[in-house]
């Protein structure tokens, strides 16, 4: 199996889909010629490989970039556009929230919008709160969208290929913290279905539901807890919308305990939705209160100790797990 980073896995998915389907094109700020040229970045070298007709460097115009995708997709192209950082989603959001998500419904099912909006996210880069802000819950609050947030390079590749082939608009959120560390990725052609969660580590005692970069934190905590005889089951959602409710409930039937872990801030975070699901549909299996480990309700701070304080870590998770087990 090849060892590549998530950035490289995304790049492979883009290149393979562009080779497979001439209707796939890319657009975004600095995706062809960018200010950061690195082989681990997801669009590295694609301009050279596919040319300027299919790899469009755009002006700094997020609304127009997102609208480009909406309009191009209704005529049958399969745009993959990039929003450079998650906070800039706000600038593109009218097109994504009011148009991409709703126009099929408004057409009475006559039109479809097969587009992907790739969004880079994640704290930990000393970039401050206008570059780091996980807004996945916003997107997940919009019926008509699908929201994918992979936690491994292998998942990112298979899920992005599915997203490009999906006839619905997909918001595909990549944590940049995963761009730099090689992990195993299968060789050759494969896809991973959207809307299917994955048990990344089976365990009998507590279910930890998480996604994206926090998967790594969950693994660190699981290792610590295992030494103390507590076996954590790590359920990686991978897709927030549509939510794989079945997978969550099945895991809760086994463990009876739930801790939710996400980097985004707590209030109104997607963790609340998972907790509500557990109470609504798996209450009789629960042996303990549901806990959340999340970013605190503050903007992502700049200074390194402050930023580290913001990002949830394995010690917080260990504490939360123990609080429901012991």
């Amino acid at each position: 199996m090849q060892q590549i980073t998530m950035g490289q896995a995304v790049r492979q998915a883009l290149a393979e889909e562009m080779q497979r389907d001439p209707n796939v094109f890319l657009a975004g700020e600095g995706i062809g010629v960018g200010i950061h040229e690195s082989p681990v970045m997801p669009t590295f070298g694609l301009l050279r490989e596919f040319g300027p007709d299919r790899v469009k460097d755009t002006p700094v115009s997020e609304a127009a970039i997102a609208g480009l995708a909406v309009g191009a997709s209704v005529l049958g192209l399969r745009p993959v556009v990039e929003v450079m950082f998650n906070p800039f989603f706000t600038l593109a959001s009218d097109q994504i929230v009011n148009h991409a998500a709703k126009l099929r419904y408004l057409s009475g099912g006559k039109s479809s919008f097969p587009m992907v909006v790739r969004v880079k996210t994640g704290a930990g880069f000393g970039a401050g709160c206008q570059h780091s802000h996980n807004l996945e819950a916003w997107a997940a609050h919009c019926p008509g969208l699908k929201v994918v947030m992979p936690g491994t390079a292998a998942d990112a590749k298979g899920l992005l290929k599915s997203a490009i082939r999906d006839d619905n608009p997909v918001v595909f959120i990549e944590d940049m913290g995963l761009y730099f560390f090689p992990t195993p990725v299968p060789e050759g052609e494969y896809t991973i279905p959207i809307g299917v969660a994955d048990i990344k580590r089976p365990g009998r005692d507590v279910t930890v539901v998480t996604w994206s970069k926090m998967l790594g934190v969950a693994f660190k905590a699981a290792a610590i807890l295992s030494k103390e005889g507590i076996e954590v089951e790590i359920l990686d959602l991978r897709t927030l919308l549509p939510l794989d409710k079945e997978a969550i409930i099945t895991s809760l039937k086994k463990t009876g305990r739930l801790v939710i872990l996400h980097e985004a801030t707590r209030t109104g975070g997607f963790g609340g939705e998972i907790a509500a699901l557990a109470v609504d549909e798996a209450f009789s299996y629960l042996k303990a209160p549901v806990k959340r480990v999340t970013g605190p309700d503050i903007p992502v701070p700049f200074s390194p100790p402050l930023e580290q304080f913001y990002i949830p870590d394995e010690h917080q998770l260990v504490e939360a797990v123990k609080s429901v087990v012991l």
């Binding site: 094109f25 007709d53 609304a63 127009a64 997102a66 609208g67 480009l68 995708a69 909406v70 309009g71 191009a72 997709s73 209704v74 005529l75 049958g76 192209l77 745009p79 009218d94 097109q95 009011n98 148009h99 126009l103 408004l106 057409s107 009475g108 006559k110 039109s111």
Partner: peptide
């Protein structure tokens, strides 16, 4: 929307259709 006559989008977000027109024109050019 009346896709049968290529009236592909009517939007009430003021100005919301203008970026979409860029997209359909891009597809026509592409």
């Amino acid at each position: 929307a009346v896709p049968e006559v290529n009236a592909l989008c009517t939007t009430t977000v003021v100005g919301g259709g203008i970026p979409i027109a860029v997209g359909t024109a891009f597809a026509q050019q592409y």
